[in-house]
Design a protein around this nucleic acid. Structure first.
Lengths: 131, 131
DNA sequence: ATATTTGTTCTATAACTTATAGAACAAAGG
DNA sequence: CCTTTGTTCTATAAGTTATAGAACAAATAT
């Protein structure tokens, strides 16, 4: 299973950390269509957190169409979103993030280069063996 | 003064909305070095919010080196950050945001194109007349 | 020197969010 | 039928957000 971790000292809520890491694992190709995620109770036990917290992360991912939740068989990565336009909310967050860099004085080209580096880093992690 | 607005129904905390909008105005060139921001009490009165809330937004901006707060003369946009490397936190947020797009199935080139569009949109808003 | 304006600090309350907790239910596979 | 998994309900506690009042201090204008 892909390595997830939880930083209890982080300002980012735990459920958000889990969701973020799973999204990044999908983008990385580490998790692909059909990959299973650990059960909510298992992951909770692993991290010493509550399974409701894990469930909240999974439910976010389900709402975003990235995973499917089934009783007994558990959480599974879906195929990529069939019609994946970026929501307006995504663009708003991108605008804020990029504005922060530009407001700091970085040239737009350099910001774009950083984004390209991040995008290029996806897919370099070997996918896990799906059982 | 640059148009700020507050959406009380938003999930984004009020102080964060104000901070985000000011950052974007700086990136846009609408606010430049030396531009004044409204006083905390003035902005609070304009929006029917508490001046402590506005102060929290201004304090974030001050911590990020984007504005300077002076008693009596108020908040002023500083020159761009002298040595503006992007903090690791910025890159982490970029990674999460970009991962969301890629996880949805968008090709990296298309995501990059969207980022470029956003970056290109900065600076197209005419700067305000600084009094 | 005083008044005014602005940010800053302190204390306090209320509502909401996050995380936890327990219990139970329901679906599904072995 | 048992086990495993997600789902739902109710509840509490701690932290965050926003508000509120009051006061202080710095700085400018008069």
């Amino acid at each position: 299973m892909v390595i997830l971790n939880v930083d209890l000292a982080s300002e980012i809520p735990i459920y958000q950390q889990l969701r973020d890491q799973i999204v990044e694992a999908i983008a990385d190709g580490v998790l692909t269509k059909g990959s299973s995620l650990p059960a909510t109770r298992t992951l909770a036990a692993d991290f010493g957190i509550n399974f409701h917290t894990v469930n909240k992360a999974y439910d976010l991912l389900r709402q975003q169409g990235l995973i499917q939740l089934n009783r007994k068989t558990g959480a599974v990565v879906t195929s990529t979103v069939a019609d994946p336009p970026l929501p307006a909310e995504w663009t708003a967050r991108a605008r804020t993030l990029l504005a922060e860099a530009v407001a700091r004085g970085l040239p737009a080209d350099e910001v774009l280069k950083t984004c390209r580096s991040v995008l290029d880093s996806f897919g370099t992690t070997p996918p896990e063996d799906t059982p």
